[in-house]
Computed example of a mutant assay.
Amino acid sequence: MTDDDFELSAPELSRDDLLVLDDPRFTRDTVAIVTGAASGIGRATAVALAANGLTVVGADIDDDGLAETERLAAAVDAEGKIDCVQTDLTDEDDVDAMVAAASDDGQLRYVANIAGMQHIDPISEFPMNKYDLLQDVMVRAPFVLSKCAMPHIKAADDGVGAIANMSSVHGHYATRDKAAYITAKHAITGLTRAIAAEGDGTLRGFSVSVGYVLTPLMLDQIADTAESRGISEQAVVEDVMLGQARTKTMMTPAEVANLFVFGFSQHANHLNGSDLCWDGGYTTTYE
């Protein structure tokens, strides 16, 4: 394949892509909050949980994207439903109001902190406003949402639930030019473990780490990395992103969403304070 032939696009989501499990708590009376629900992994996770029969509150600042997520849930004949709430995750009052609205929909048991962003620059040139924004969205917002949601989850009839945080292979190791993102993902490991420590065994905390996923955010990152390194987008994918992996394909958003479905289910009762690392060999192998 030549550079001229190289083209990537985010995949379409279908019902067949989704993991659907039998679980006594996967009903419309159970509420799950998903942040970043307007696109990518957040959208796929919201749809996957709705397909498992849950009531999902999708939170994002992008109202048009949230409407598309609701449309997609209907297109896959989800047994549950998605109620989207436009939310500025950097605004504590907004987050608190969103959680209150979610608790009115049923028993709030699950939270998926997925919203994320990226900026690529070396540390010496990294704009601090971008650094601060990344930390606000990917560290402070999950903390605030967990703080607001934990009392509701513990108040469920049996106190069973889970808070899941989107981590990354960059929560396990570092590469160049992504210092703010790497810092945030390492921090999320600490939050995950703190949730588990305070969850009394019934409210679990876990994280999900994956390599590169075909999302709109990733497509932008490919272009940015190509520009910053002076190489082609094909070289970014084949040499930079997949060069170290043993599985030579990118994950799809649905494959990541299925990890959240499993992690929330009764089949993952011992997943607590730990990380589901689906990385294709990034963090465990090298040449």
Rank of each mutant, 00 (worst) to 15 (best):
V34I: 02
E79Y: 01
Q221W: 01
I222D: 00
L19T: 11
E70Y: 08
L219K: 08
D224M: 06
A180S: 14
V237Y: 06
T69Q: 10
G36W: 02
S274M: 10
D23R: 04
K185W: 14
G161W: 12
I120H: 13
A38C: 05
V76C: 01
L134E: 11
V95I: 15
H172E: 11
R193E: 11
E198N: 12
L242P: 01
G201P: 09
L54H: 08
A180D: 09
S39L: 02
V240S: 05
V236Q: 07
T202V: 05
D157S: 14
G161Y: 13
A74S: 13
S228M: 06
F262G: 00
A245C: 00
H172V: 05
V213R: 02
M1P: 07
H170C: 06
M128E: 13
Q266I: 03
V137S: 03
A197E: 14
A78Y: 13
N165T: 14
N272K: 09
C277D: 03
L242D: 10
T2S: 15
D96P: 00
A174M: 07
A254W: 12
A194L: 13
G42F: 04
S228D: 01
D132L: 08
D77Q: 09
D16F: 02
Y181C: 03
A38T: 00
M150N: 01
T55W: 09
S232T: 09
A187R: 02
T2K: 12
I222F: 00
H267A: 06
I163C: 01
Y286T: 09
V256S: 05
Y173W: 07
V144Y: 07
S39E: 02
S168I: 05
D88Q: 11
A101I: 05
D105C: 13
Q135P: 03
K185F: 13
T202P: 05
I182W: 14
Q86C: 13
L21S: 03
T252A: 14
V111W: 10
A194T: 15
D63L: 07
V169Q: 09
G230T: 14
M117Y: 04
A149P: 06
I195W: 03
A226L: 12
A196M: 12
T202R: 15
G230C: 06
R109C: 08
I195A: 06
S124G: 05
V236T: 06
D279A: 12
